[in-house]
Nucleic acid binder design. Structure first.
Lengths: 342, 342
DNA sequence: AGCCGTTACTAAACCGGTAAAGTCCTTATT
DNA sequence: AATAAGGACTTTACCGGTTTAGTAACGGCT
């Protein structure tokens, strides 16, 4: 089996009857070539099936058509979380238009991630990166500023320092959720939150507190979990095991997996949804429409969110304008079958 | 903001008082250096925080620490499918041990994928690739053989030609599923399958046919879908809308999303599960344990599957031994609350 | 002493591109 | 007619490693 002889820029140049430099100019759409020559070069490249070698190109100083995404959460948890895959598919949909690839890496700690970003950037593996899951005083902010690496931070500006950020207004969304439940007549409301270490969880927790106080609810519980269905089930079980007059009549979940788990726990405990307890999910993947009753949810377009992040990143990479704050639409309440007056 | 001065092999060499060549030898663990020099070099590198530049290294002929994965399915569908994210996290868990990254690309057609693999390989972007979702006469087989690119094909050997393959025995699993339902007493069984174009769907379809014939079931339906929850719901609705004496008493689904959708359709139609109809899911993500009743499923360790694929790929890349066939454990039946005698 | 074979290392030639500087040929300007 | 100003390319110097060929020093052997 003969490996096809690697075709290089030199071969293309020879076939088009020009120098390597000319081919380079043509392929980078730079001025200084006549239309005719340009066409001849592209034709030669097409015939030989040539595409520039990334390694060489990046060595020689140009940017690469790769952006990085590092996620640090336990790998097994990611499997189920519909959010990330949908987010990634949104990112990809924009990257694809630019023939750009995504370098994906799952790791355990933020410190590891800082090291990775460093080596990605110094090694010119990526021309920019997407940062997610911010926590308070996140070390990545300083790290990428020191490196001068183009990034887009997914998270509220208060968490992402001077970095360009794309974010959803979690606080407003939580407030809307609580107001809605209160408007239905609920006075005892609980929230099954995500991982406590994450910045957006803290924001939601604070907003929930404020909303509960503002509406003078008689009962307001909050539990932190790890986003897994099991944790959601556990939390729900413990919330609902109080006596009927003490337990919450409505529960808000931080993602839809936990809401689905909660729904199943309610039915396992013989409680009807929404008769005995109302449930409200978050993120609203397809899942919420597949249960019975269907789940009311704070829904937002995660795919579009990912796409917006990718677009913003391209802006930062090419334009270099860092530091902006790009809010995407706040999740809106989509009432379905799992919420009703108590 | 000063970009940190890039430190190169030359700096390390200077600091250790040797030539670049010596540093290269040391870092590639090649013979020809004294212990003392080797230590001095490593110490110098440590002090300067130097790591070899991947681009330069790959240009100069060595392999890259990146493997590719291209998936061609509509991006939006991937979002929900727990399978892929779990698969990817399994792959990552092994890659991470080798400080290797995953280059992910979502695209629309196999033809696009062939082009992508070509440019990945010729441009030395990756040192190997994972191929998924095989169909009959898949053009990728010939393409990667022509390129001489190390790959691992995820799919049955009959689909993947001479490529090294990792696969689950779908036929046996389908047979077991049908046998189990028949043993419970079901005579009218249906299967809501995946995308008809995919090879493994065809294999399952044939196996289901054979099993149904072998067990002389009185009714056996099969429907092809696109793996989405909506499609699963639609298929279920149409299967269950026949009169009680004609409709299937058990339904097997090709993934768990569709099974969850089916469960909700049954309850929407006032049918009890498993009283009126038994449901059997596939893949068995956490989701199956979160519904009520819990879903019986053909379960396999998708995370481990991904890990095995990655391990095999490393074998092909380093060992060069291509062409093997690596079966991973056949999915096993995990009975839960959604299956019972009719 | 003279020769050979190792060992430990250096010098220089790539790898396949990019980018800055240089060359040559037209065309417009004074 | 002499000169300046572009346009269209070519030359050439890198980028940061790997690798091959080459060299100096040293020890063993006849």
């Amino acid at each position: 089996m003969t490996t096809p002889s690697r075709v290089t820029i030199k071969d293309v140049a020879a076939r088009a009857g020009v120098s390597k430099g000319a081919v380079s100019l043509a392929f980078n759409h730079k001025p200084g070539l006549s239309e005719a020559t340009r066409d001849r070069i592209f034709e030669a490249a097409r015939q030989l099936g040539w595409a520039p070698n990334l390694a060489a190109r990046s060595l020689a100083g140009r940017r690469v058509d790769v952006v990085g995404l590092a996620i640090c959460r336990p790998a097994r948890l990611l499997g189920l979380e519909p959010f990330y895959m949908e987010f990634i598919s949104g990112v990809e949909s924009v990257l694809t238009e630019h023939s750009c690839s995504l370098l994906l890496r799952l790791l355990r700690t933020v410190e590891e991630e800082v090291g990775l970003l460093d080596s990605w950037w110094r090694g010119k593996h990526v021309s920019g990166s997407i940062l997610v899951d911010f926590r308070a005083d996140d070390p990545r902010v300083a790290a990428v500023e020191r490196l001068g690496m183009p990034v887009v931070a997914v998270g509220h500006p208060t968490l992402t320092g001077g970095l360009t950020s794309v974010w959803t207004d979690d606080a407003s969304a939580v407030t809307e959720a609580v107001r809605y439940l209160a408007a239905l007549g609920h006075r005892r409301v609980a929230r099954v939150g995500g991982a406590a270490a994450l910045g957006h969880t803290a924001i939601r927790t604070a907003a929930f507190d404020a909303a509960a106080r503002g509406l003078e609810l008689s009962g307001a519980w909050q539990v932190a979990t790890d986003f897994s269905g099991e944790a959601g089930a556990r939390a729900t079980r413990s919330l609902l095991s109080a006596s009927a007059s003490d337990r919450p009549t409505a529960i808000v979940y931080d993602n839809d997996i936990m809401a689905v788990a909660g729904l199943s726990v309610a039915s396992e405990m013989g409680l009807s949804v929404p008769g005995d307890v109302s449930l409200l999910a978050w993120d609203d993947s397809q899942l919420c429409r597949l249960t019975h009753p269907t789940l009311s949810a704070m829904s937002h377009d995660v795919h579009g969110f990912g796409a917006e992040v990718a677009r913003t990143l391209f802006g930062v990479i090419t334009g270099g304008e860092a530091g902006g704050s790009h809010p995407v639409p706040t999740p809106v309440l989509t009432p379905r079958g799992s919420t009703a007056p108590p």
